[in-house]
């Protein structure tokens, strides 16, 4: 059974008609598909079908271990949105867990952003990102029923695209309970920066920037 309904496809097709540059989706699953691996893969397949500008590569987390390492993917289901075509570029945009519910829009926003080549971040944030000289890792914990969460995910992914020093993961809290425990996640969105600094809620750029400055 298709996950995307006909009306959804139509809206997405129209949206994707604006895509100017090729986008690649990379999905990691495994033969004995994990919880939501199957749906994550199927969702990616159905999205990729909607535009010639979107290509999809699906890998087995176990069999293609070296590729998983290359992409620095350590858990599944994992989805990467990156520039495709002849000159591919991975920005460090990651979704761990299924991007369903409110998070489905984050995948689509990311595709549009990567194809457009512009993050839309404010001048101050861009200046900070440009001056970064050490790596920054953001993990944005979400649930699919959280309307505030996509804002936090998108901002993380904007940052990842803005600077090669930054990687940003969406982490679906319920699918990765050990990570939720590790980072004491009992509310979402919760953004963990470089393991130590954390922030509750979908904060505007200046607030996130203040936290980022603490971390790096």
């Amino acid at each position: 059974m298709a996950l995307l309904q006909e009306a959804d496809r139509k809206v997405l097709k129209e949206k994707f008609a604006e895509l100017k540059n090729p986008v690649k989706m990379v999905v990691f699953t495994q033969e004995m598909e994990c919880q939501y691996c199957k749906e994550t893969r199927q969702l990616a397949e159905e999205v990729a079908e909607l535009s010639d500008m979107i290509t999809l590569e699906v890998y087995d987390f176990v069999k293609h271990q070296e590729i998983a390492e290359e992409y620095n993917v350590d858990k599944i289901p994992a989805t990467i949105i990156m520039t495709g075509g002849d000159d591919p570029k991975d920005y460090g945009i990651r979704f761990y867990g299924i991007p369903s519910g409110y998070e489905f829009s984050s995948i689509i926003e990311d595709i549009m952003m990567v194809a457009g080549g512009e993050t839309g971040l404010g001048a101050e944030m861009k200046a900070w990102a440009a001056a970064l000289d050490k790596p920054v890792h953001l993990q944005v914990f979400v649930t699919p029923t959280c309307p505030y969460c996509p804002r936090a995910v998108l901002m993380g992914h904007q940052l990842a695209m803005e600077s090669d020093m930054i990687t940003a993961d969406m982490v679906e809290a319920i699918e990765f309970p050990h990570l939720s425990n590790k980072y004491a996640v009992q509310g979402v969105p919760r953004t963990v920066i470089n393991e130590t600094i954390h922030m509750e809620g979908a904060a505007p750029e200046p607030m996130l920037l203040a936290k980022l400055k603490q971390a790096a």
Binding site: Q5, F104, S105, I108, P144
Partner: peptide, 14 residues
């Protein structure tokens, strides 16, 4: 959410 409510986040895609 998967089967029916992708539209939660889809409504602003236009």
């Amino acid at each position: 959410n998967l089967n029916m409510d992708l539209g939660m986040g889809l409504s602003n895609l236009g």
